[in-house]
Design a protein around this nucleic acid. Structure first.
Length: 329
DNA sequence: CGCGTTTGACCGGCGC
DNA sequence: GCGCCGGTCAAACGCG
């Protein structure tokens, strides 16, 4: 639990908000449930407690902010889960095989546009992601953690570039083939469309476009999951995360609501900062204040460390990675 | 000459 | 039904 001083901005008593970033499948639902039931009596000590002295209007304001932060929390959890799945919980051979099998069963690149679009076969994961529905896929009942990770198909990565650089390229270790470019309505700069060129059957697509607010920020949207290793062994993460932080990068949290872009580099003072919050300027201000606080940083580190160390899959994978680095005896 | 990029046209989804 | 818009295709083009 992170103590948010949202109430200070709303002019009333402090309130505790859940910003946990746990990796368990049930975690994303927690925030929404709390938003819907803010006065659940079974919450642990330190959970959400509305001050009894606040007015209805203040309560509504807080509830709105509460819902907003809960949604943010959910998206952050999804993003972290995706990164976890990409870097640690690599798809099992079964999954990779099934992916390959489904792709082998699907028709080859169509000789004609009509044939490919009129195909009655169910779309594979990449196609589903391309249609913008993959992120909304619900977990089947009883799905394990790894299964839930696989359903996060869309991620966004922001990279700071030279504003004079007109090439819409994001160096992420993979090889991409550009297949289209389009000027979209909400952004004067063109959007470039890429497909993964490393493996012909790889369904991953990438859209790259300059940020509408800041032309020096390149926003790359990845759809689908690679079914092959990264050619340069750097993984899907942008270069800053895997090559020592020489290139600024950030993670943008999601697609349907207000977009919050967190800069994860250690530029200047270092640490996390909010690059942009498209559609939610108030939220950006609030987040900047929260993230700047020592309490937030300390609690975030503790929360993430706690969540990771509680996850047996993570500790197992970590132990295996460490063992690999040790000489054989 | 082969390969990757560019770019105008086309298609399908969606809102009115 | 119509128009808008994002996504995709494929011929044309450019480069090594």
């Amino acid at each position: 639990m992170l103590l948010m001083d949202s109430a200070r901005h709303a002019g009333c008593s402090p309130v505790c908000l859940d910003l946990s970033v746990g990796l368990s499948p049930s975690t994303p639902k927690t925030g929404a449930r709390m938003a819907a039931e803010p006065e659940r009596p079974d919450l642990p000590a330190g959970g959400c407690r509305m001050a009894s002295s606040m007015t209805d209007e203040q309560a509504k304001t807080l509830e709105a902010k509460f819902t907003q932060v809960s949604e943010l929390n959910r998206r952050l959890t999804e993003t972290i889960a995706y990164l976890y799945a990409s870097q640690i919980a690599r798809p099992s051979p079964d999954f990779a095989d099934s992916t390959r099998a489904s792709q082998a069963a699907s028709p080859p690149p169509a000789a004609s546009r009509k044939r490919s679009r009129d195909s009655s076969e169910p779309p594979n994961s990449g196609d589903a992601a391309a249609s913008g529905k993959a992120e909304a896929v619900e977990s089947p009942p009883g799905d394990d953690f790894e299964g839930s990770c696989r359903q996060i198909k869309v991620s966004r990565v922001c990279t700071r570039i030279d504003p004079s650089d007109t090439t819409l390229t994001v160096k992420d270790g993979y090889q991409w083939r550009k297949y289209g470019q389009k000027v979209t309505r909400d952004n004067p700069s063109p959007r470039a469309y890429f497909r993964c060129a490393y493996a012909p059957s790889c369904p991953v697509k990438k859209k790259v476009q300059r940020s509408a607010e800041d032309s020096s920020v390149l926003v790359a949207t990845y759809e689908g999951e690679h079914n092959h290793p990264c050619p340069t062994r750097t993984g899907e993460l942008p270069s800053c995360a895997t090559r020592g932080g020489s290139v600024p990068c950030s993670i943008s949290i999601n697609s349907s609501g207000p977009t919050i872009t967190l800069d994860l580099t250690k530029n200047g003072a270092g640490g996390v900062r909010v690059l942009e919050a498209a559609g939610a300027p108030d939220l950006k201000k609030l987040l900047c204040q929260e993230i700047a606080s020592a309490e937030f940083r300390t609690a975030l580190v503790e929360q993430m460390a706690s969540s990771l160390t509680r996850d047996s899959k993570f500790t197992d994978a970590l132990a295996a990675a460490i063992l690999k680095q040790l000489p054989d005896y």
